[in-house]
């Protein structure tokens, strides 16, 4: 699974993207966040408040209950500020 990070989420985690191998316990985006939070303090801090995290699965904005699979590209970012 390809994961991408943008804006301050990227800054806090310290990388733009990474590949992880999905395990059975990860069914939704929320499960993925909980898995990442356990990796280390950087992730724990970046995902400390779910309410400021937005996500896209295969470049479509979704909510955190969206189901994901190994072939998906998941992106995490703060609210968008275009224009």
């Amino acid at each position: 699974m390809q994961i991408k990070y943008f804006s301050w989420v990227k800054d806090q985690i310290g990388q733009e993207s990474e590949n992880i191998t999905i395990t059975e316990q990860i069914i939704t985006v929320k499960d993925l966040i909980n898995y990442l939070k356990k990796k280390n303090d950087k992730y724990a801090k970046a995902f400390a408040d779910d309410s400021v995290i937005r996500c896209a699965v295969n470049m479509e904005v979704t909510d955190l209950n969206h189901k994901i699979s190994d072939n998906d590209e998941i992106a995490f970012f703060p609210p968008m500020t275009g224009g």
């Binding site: 943008f6 804006s7 800054d11 896209a56 904005v61 970012f77 703060p78 968008m80 500020t81 275009g82």
Partner: peptide
């Protein structure tokens, strides 16, 4: 403004802020 995936980093003498 709220639906296109852009993020702005402002840089000033005080540092950088998203």
């Amino acid at each position: 403004k709220t639906k296109a995936p852009f993020w702005k980093l402002e840089e000033s003498n005080q540092g950088s802020t998203w």
